[in-house]
């Protein structure tokens, strides 16, 4: 029983990490007022870039860096189309998904079925890792896990405690007023979309370097869509993203733990979306107060000087 508990907790953190990273990216993107539905594509590109570079250089760290870079580059397409050209962000995001998935399978084809020669070793925190149960689960994880924790807290501090954070949020809420304050709306939005792309790329690298340690088509497996649900579930708050990512990760892991007692995996597979719907319902029921905190100008292109 002990080993099942450790396994569930451990797998939850591993399965939740890519969700967390990509959700953090989508939160900052959406906070600036840009909706990016292309997470699935950006993750796929990150996964394949990370894998190829790790294979070529033998360094998973370089792999991670190039995954982030690849995510930034592909998200730049979305940024250009939706910010500079002011096109429909839904269409552009969906196109980004298809472009990313297609491009990843095209460039990844020669690398299918190749095992990863170098593996990123788990980072063991001395002393703490020897604590029973907790130590094994929390303090002996892969570097991505710790980075995602740090990034999550940093992003929360950035968004809620710094001047930059206020500027990003105000761009998402009321770009006209922000512009009157002297902010360059396009620049802020570009930066946020690119950060979001980088984080999605990093999430992809986690999948190919840590989670499955190989590249196969369909590696992202719909996580990009779960991330979009998660962003709403987290109410655009990085701290709630932790809760959501690990909750959804746990549900994913439990699918197979609970199967022998007769709970069909498909039912649990629906849970992330049901949970998101529940959050939306709760938001809809609470009248009077703005509960959901969706950025007011989410998905709306902004034209300079326009009212």
């Amino acid at each position: 029983m002990d080993s099942i508990l450790i396994s569930v907790l451990n797998r939850t953190l591993v399965a939740g990490t890519p969700l967390l990273l990509a959700t953090l990216g989508e939160i900052i993107t959406e906070r600036s007022g840009i909706l990016n539905l292309g997470i699935e594509g950006m993750m796929a590109v990150g996964a394949v870039a990370g894998f190829i570079v790790t294979l070529a250089t033998g360094s998973p760290w370089l792999g991670m860096a190039s995954a982030i870079l690849a995510g930034i580059l592909i998200s730049a397409i979305h940024a250009f189309v939706s910010i500079s050209l002011k096109a429909n962000q839904v269409v552009s995001g969906l196109a980004l998904t298809m472009l990313g998935l297609g491009g990843a399978s095209l460039f990844g084809r020669p690398f299918i079925g190749r095992p990863l020669p170098v593996k990123m070793a788990p980072f063991r925190i001395p002393i703490l890792a020897d604590i029973p149960l907790v130590g094994k689960v929390l303090f002996n994880q892969d570097p991505f896990f710790y980075l995602s924790l740090i990034l999550g807290v940093l992003l929360w501090v950035l968004l809620s405690r710094t001047r930059w954070g206020i500027q990003i949020r105000s761009v998402g809420e009321n770009p006209a007023a922000s512009e009157a304050q002297g902010l360059n709306i396009s620049t802020v939005r570009y930066i946020c979309v690119l950060i979001g792309g980088g984080l999605a790329g990093m999430a992809g690298a986690h999948l190919s370097l840590i989670y499955s340690k190989s590249w196969t088509e369909g590696l992202t497996g719909g996580r990009g869509w779960i991330v979009i649900a998660l962003t709403i579930f987290a109410l655009w708050n990085p701290l709630r993203a932790f809760l959501g990512a690990y909750l959804f990760g746990c549900i994913f892991v439990l699918q197979y733990i609970l199967q022998p007692i007769g709970i069909p995996p498909n039912l649990l597979g629906m849970m992330p979306y049901l949970a998101t719907l529940a959050v939306l319902f709760a938001g809809g029921l609470k009248k009077g107060r703005r509960y959901l905190h969706a950025p007011a100008m989410l998905g709306e292109p902004y034209t300079k000087g326009e009212r």
Binding site: S3, S7, V8, S212, G221, F252, Y256, I257, P260
Partner: peptide
């Protein structure tokens, strides 16, 4: 791959 992986982990945990 990810479902297969989690199913395998569940069996090992069992």
């Amino acid at each position: 791959p990810s479902k297969a992986k989690e199913a395998a982990e569940a069996l090992v945990a069992d």
